[in-house]
Design a protein around this nucleic acid. Structure first.
Lengths: 175, 175
DNA sequence: CTTGAAATACTACTACG
DNA sequence: CGTAGTAGTATTTCAAG
């Protein structure tokens, strides 16, 4: 009885507050669901329900609540880069010529169109941007570098850090 | 009839060769499937089949083949970091004291245990490693920095690049 | 080796207690 | 939240290209 009350409260808080720390308002079961779905979301709802020791409808309701609350941003298939012929990863530090809003906007617009660009972030420190780019091999990166990166607008300097070994690369979020 | 021949060839190559460029051996339908699943894998198989203009069983077989071939590494739920109370992203460049195998191994082992560490790569250039870490805010990062990062084994220097704005962050692979 | 149609088994989903 | 019932889906079988 009391147990039920606590669960409802927890579930309500999720949908209510998107800010603060929504993670704190998740109970043990919600966390177990998120952990599982972050690892393998192709699991069926009944199997998931069994894992978290819940009935199927109750489990489904929680999953849908987590999606609607925005905590689960989406469910996607991950492609193995190496198998897809893009085993090379390069991290790029970019310094712009001028630090004007126009300069930044122009660069960002162009950067998103760079083939294989997976990430692009504005950062503090000695660089203006960090980008990560997936490509096939050093030849293809060299081509990309010469044909696209060097022509990005307003760029003063580009420093490339070739990734020799990927120790860790996860989409999983610690709960 | 020629069309069928090409498709068969394509499908065979996928399961056969994991190297080379498996993407080249995928036909139009496989690419459409991958594009869709990378965007939203929560779609039902019948809906996916309709999108790629195929019968449900045929579509399901292709999806399973793509999984078995390793091209689809997995299907996962993505959590919104901000909603999960980890809206801050920091990129860290690490320089080790000594460049010995033991030194690298020890660091890598410890780095994977850092709370919120999403990526860790060995790189060429002025750094030995790049790591990306998700955390709540500057306070929590400062704590992490003082309590964990500074105690990573064999570290000579750590340079932090705070991410001010995430322009692009995708798991989607260009096909 | 693939495709699509039909049949079966299972699952998601709804209504209700 | 759980139980029971319904609708829809995944999955297998099989015949055909």
């Amino acid at each position: 009885m009391n147990k039920t009350k606590v669960r409802n409260l927890a579930a309500t808080r999720v949908t209510a507050s998107t800010h603060a720390d929504p993670l704190q308002s998740l109970d043990r079961i919600d966390r177990a669901i998120l952990r599982q779905l972050q690892t393998d979301a192709s699991i069926s709802n009944v199997a998931l329900a069994a894992k978290v020791k819940l009935s199927a409808p109750a489990c489904l309701r929680r999953v849908e609540r987590l999606k609607e609350s925005g905590l689960i941003r989406g469910v996607v298939a991950l492609i193995d880069p190496k198998a897809a012929g893009a085993g090379m990863l390069v991290i790029i530090g970019v310094v712009l010529d001028r630090s004007t809003p126009e300069s930044f906007a122009e660069f960002e617009k162009a950067a998103q169109k760079v083939a294989g660009c997976m990430e692009c972030h504005v950062v503090t420190g000695e660089f203006d941007y960090f980008m990560t780019i997936r490509t096939r091999d050093s030849d293809s990166f060299n081509r990309l570098h010469a044909e696209q990166l060097l022509y990005l607008p307003g760029v003063r300097q580009i420093r490339s850090f070739m990734v020799l070994k990927e120790i860790l690369s996860t989409t999983r979020f610690p709960l």
